[in-house]
Design a protein around this nucleic acid. Structure first.
Length: 616
RNA sequence: UGGGGAUUAGUGUAACGGUAGCACGACUGACUCUGGAUCAGUUAGUCUAGGUUCAAAUCCUAGAUCCCCAGCCA
């Protein structure tokens, strides 16, 4: 579906209307101004849920000829780290977003940081103190909590609420200069301790934190809270549409209150004591992406990493962008997924099948085909020597991508000994089994028709070798006499095959909603309340799929793959899409053999035979 | 219990007083040198109860259910 005939979601409709009324003015080129941003906190790795936000924000800027900022919301030095900054920039770039000042030779060029606005925010805070809209509070965290009241009971004013302005000014300045220990005082907005919206009960604007900031060093020891900082960051950057997720809906009145409080007494032309009015962005909330068969919270993903339940943030089973990238998921598929999942205020769960469909759909068009045998069984062509030298190699033409004629073709070697897939043979075929069985004829893809004549087993009855004859007249795969076969198998020449490791992935969890409350599980007997809480909180861990990773050490792949670069994506015919994992050795140029190759299965092909079998 | 949101096939999303549509999934069948892809078809829905209207998913009233908010996190 093209972008233009997709239904317009509610945010696009809001922007259409804004543009119609000229609400945000125009860029120098005359186009109505649309300016969005993605504002991550650098305290973890990005996941597929963030991709929706990035793509939504970037997509709107692109669609309307506007701008998109990547801005770190780095207001809490105790949780943030440069490592996360770097990974986030890498992921946002990988998704294809572009921002002003972006450069290829410097990944961080043009990236913005909330911490660069700390001085401006501080000055505005001083202004609110002067206007009687903010005060320094000496209550402890526990007292603030107690005085805040509850969902149903109003709060009580802090005893410091009516401190004289001059005293507030002095104290706030000394807070900044580092005279007071962490937690001893805060700067709070003076709003309404009886508001039914808890966020308006004199929220904290600044807390004292003597900690080095990853960019500001020791310059600051007071740090702004999210609610105070976030709207101001958007205002400073001239963001028109501050798009965020649903849980911030109830913060919007506060976000608006702060801007209004700053603009109180300010004028459009800057005349008067307070100067020019500041820009007031519109916050719009949408439902974040959630997918079944996985978890999305940073806390839970971190726990999986910490406990070693996955190999790291970029484990291909993780819903992180780095994990998806390593898994071989193309960014195009993520874009398509987000476009299809839509943008709305309903908090639904998208089925992971939609992601898999988007991945297959894209890879089907672009992935070169190759042949690989995951669980090999040896086939001996009994009559191979009757038609030429026993050790000859027959190089056959194979199409690289039937969906893309421009992809051309390649040569694959065929010999008297081959590997085929164990599950492509049955000594006694079940109903509707069209593959190889004694007496049956099948086609080897791009090669010959072969007929099974016998089976060799070892002492314990395991099949060791399949004996077959080939029909030399069927070279390329078609019989001159027009006879048809029901099945085509993939194969690899024993002599040319490259032994490789293949990692098969399934859903991380074996239940669609791992985070669901577990009503059936009995409370652990004799446990304390805290233990029971912990047990409940981690019940989702028990739903991890023990089969989410299957490692095959001795798959056999066709020789063409010897030089495949890290990250290369291929379709193993009849099996699925695979990519070369970074655990592989780098391609060695001329070398043949000896290179350690590891493939990740990105996603299997749809398998109607497998499904039929599973049901039976 | 206060406040803020949400509710349309299994899932997600359109329809903005005028034919409830699309996609994914599932199921049939056709075709096929990938049991893939493709093509054709089937399946299945407006949270409930009233009301307004020629006409209601849409407007009104009442209710139900679910989510979010009581960090010096974001």
């Amino acid at each position: 579906m093209s972008e233009s005939d997709r239904p317009r979601h509610f945010i696009q409709q809001i922007i259409d209307e804004d543009n119609r009324t000229g609400k945000w003015g125009a860029w120098p080129d005359g186009r109505p101004r649309v300016h969005t941003r993605f504002p991550p906190e650098p305290n973890g790795y990005l996941h597929i849920g963030h991709a929706k936000s990035i793509l939504l924000n970037y997509g709107l800027a692109e669609e309307f000829g506007g701008r998109f900022n990547l801005r770190f919301d780095d207001t809490n030095p105790t949780r943030e780290d440069q490592e996360y900054v770097d990974s986030i920039i890498r992921d946002v770039r990988w998704l294809g977003a572009r921002w002003p000042g972006m450069r290829d030779d410097d990944p961080s060029a043009g990236v913005l940081y909330a911490s660069d606005y700390f001085q401006q925010m501080f000055e505005w805070a001083v202004e609110l103190i002067r206007k009687g809209r903010a005060f320094v509070c000496d209550q402890t965290a526990a007292e603030i909590r107690e005085f805040r009241g509850t969902l149903t009971a109003p709060g009580r004013p802090s005893p410091w609420r009516d401190r004289p302005i001059e005293e507030n000014l002095d104290l706030f300045d000394r807070m900044r200069r580092g005279e007071f220990p962490d937690g001893s005082r805060t700067l709070r907005a003076r709003i309404d301790m009886a508001s039914p919206n808890l966020n308006l009960r004199d929220p904290v604007m600044y807390r004292i934190v003597h900690a080095a900031h990853h960019r500001q060093g020791d310059r600051w020891c007071v740090y702004p809270m999210y609610d105070w900082a976030h709207g101001l960051e958007d205002s400073i950057e001239g963001i028109t549409h501050s798009i965020c997720t649903l849980e911030f809906e109830i913060h919007r009145p506060l976000y608006d209150w702060f801007i209004h409080a700053i603009n109180e007494g300010r004028t459009a032309d800057g005349s008067g004591p307070w100067g020019r009015r500041i820009h007031h962005p519109q916050q719009i909330e949408f439902a974040r992406l959630s997918l079944n068969y996985t978890v999305m919270s940073k806390r839970k993903l971190l726990l999986l990493v910490k406990r070693g339940l996955v190999r790291g943030w970029d484990d291909p089973r993780m819903p992180t962008l780095s994990g998806l990238r390593r898994r071989g998921c193309p960014p195009e598929a993520l874009r398509e997924l987000c476009a299809r999942a839509g943008v709305a205020k309903f908090k639904g769960t998208t089925e992971i099948q939609l992601l898999e469909h988007c991945v297959r759909d894209h890879l089907n068009r672009v992935a070169p085909r190759a042949m690989a045998v995951l669980r090999p069984v040896r086939v001996v062509i009994e009559n191979w020597a009757e038609h030429g030298p026993a050790d000859r190699v027959d190089w056959l033409d194979a199409v690289n991508n039937p969906e893309d004629p421009a992809a051309g073709s390649r040569k694959v070697p065929f010999c008297g000994e081959l590997f085929i897939e164990q599950e492509d043979f049955a000594e006694v075929p079940p109903p509707k089994f069209w593959r190889l069985f004694p007496g049956n004829e099948v086609r080897l893809r791009y090669a010959y028709l072969i007929r099974c004549t016998g089976v060799e087993k070892d002492a314990s009855g395991n099949i060791v070798t399949l004996r077959c004859t080939y029909d030399p007249a069927t070279r390329g795969g078609d019989a001159p006499d027009g006879r048809k076969v029901k099945s085509t198998l993939h194969w690899v020449s024993v002599r040319h095959a490259i032994r490789s490791e293949v990692r098969l992935y399934e859903h991380l969890f074996n239940t669609p909603d791992p985070e669901a409350a577990d009503d059936d599980a009995p409370e652990p007997l004799g446990a304390t309340a805290a233990d029971a809480d912990a047990a409940r909180a981690e019940a989702w861990l028990a739903r991890l799929n023990p089969n989410s990773l299957t490692t095959i050490a001795d798959a056999q792949v066709e020789p063409m793959l010897a030089e495949a670069p890290i990250g290369a994506v291929v379709q193993f015919e009849r099996l699925g899409y695979f990519c070369v994992d970074p655990d592989s050795e780098a391609p060695a140029g001329q070398s043949t053999g000896g290179r350690r190759l590891v493939f990740n299965r990105t996603v299997s092909l749809k398998d109607s035979w497998g499904r039929q079998q599973a049901k039976a």
